[in-house]
Nucleic acid binder design. Structure first.
Lengths: 188, 188
DNA sequence: ACACTATCTTTACGCTGTATAGATTGTCAA
DNA sequence: TTGACAATCTATACAGCGTAAAGATAGTGT
């Protein structure tokens, strides 16, 4: 049932997931779903958890801490790419400490962070890398830029907007972040 | 009317903004609102635009490009703090090129970015700094950490979670970003 | 064979956005 | 002053939503 709900969300958007609609997909009345789920919120949280099961937490054989962090972050990004319509539901799930949480924190400690520094670095990473995934733009960079910059002198930059995807922007942000962390380690 | 809708959203949450409810606040039937607004989506977009009018774009007398970027980003963050419940509606508004867009881009060009580099830096800043604002956590860092790390060895870090607010995390991310940009400029 | 349990259906309620049609009011020209 | 026109508001209605409550059905273990 959660499986079908996830498919439905991915195919027709999260708004298509109504109790009646999901019921009819399963060949059943809407109220029958309440035997398996406490409420619709419950269902959405279950979909979120279901998505999380696809999170690839295999610790790759990457030696340096930077590579390990990149691996974890890209695994998250991949999850969004797989379920663009329903990825935001991950936040409805009660997350707890995931294997990736451990991996991320361990990489930071290996890097040389500890105590307050490690906590702040971890939280900052999650804070800034997850949010854009949840809030991923629907329009391509080129379209968005055309809409926003049309008729202004900024449209001169349009060719560059053509060159990059949102994945590129996200990847660039990740690198900037890690550069910042590295610089901070070097200074201390 | 948009004014009252914004107040209602800020006081009782965005879910309280229904056509009937807003009508009754204004002493009028729900359908009367449709004389002034095409649809509810229209209304929400209007609230988003209304919030944007509070964006303080005064170019401060800050000399360095880094300070100028910080100023603009903090102005955005301040907007979220003022309207935590309804800030996400900013994304419904048709934004276009705002004074802050110009200011941000100009600061980047002053810094030494140009062409593709400027575009990518701008987009990355917006991408990573706006999304967390829209997706600002409801629980405090301490509460969130307690919930997530309870019963695991990571709860040892709980004291550090007490020390920081989400604003601190956001500010930390901003600095990391700018550190990254600075490093990139130095390298080129 | 009987009771118990899990599952599903039916009906109904209050809520949502909004289409449609009619009433009311204010403004301006004849 | 009167009459038309436009702006505004009300009344009614409809389809859709989540879900409470009660009843039907069927499968299981004693």
């Amino acid at each position: 049932m959660v499986e079908r709900a996830l498919e439905l969300a991915d195919e027709e958007g999260i708004d298509a997931v109504t109790m009646r609609r999901l019921g009819s997909v399963l060949g059943v009345e809407a109220m029958a779903l309440y035997t398996h789920v406490r409420s619709k919120d419950d269902l959405l949280a279950a979909i979120g958890s279901r998505i999380l099961t696809e999170l690839d937490a295999e610790p790759q054989d990457v030696a340096d801490w930077r590579g390990r962090i990149e691996t974890v972050c890209r695994a998250w990004a991949k999850l969004r790419a797989r379920h663009p319509e329903s990825f935001a539901l991950v936040y409805r799930a009660e997350i707890g400490v995931l294997p990736v949480t451990e991996e991320l924190m361990d990489a930071l400690i290996t890097a040389g962070f500890s105590g307050a520094g490690a906590w702040l670095a971890y939280q900052t990473l999650v804070f800034f890398l997850d949010a854009p995934l949840v809030h991923w733009p629907r329009l391509s960079p080129a379209e968005a830029w055309r809409l926003d910059a049309e008729g202004t002198h900024l449209r001169e930059l349009a060719p560059f907007a053509q060159h990059y995807s949102w994945d590129d922007v996200w990847e660039n942000g990740l690198e900037l972040f890690l550069d910042g962390l590295e610089a901070r380690l070097r200074r201390s």
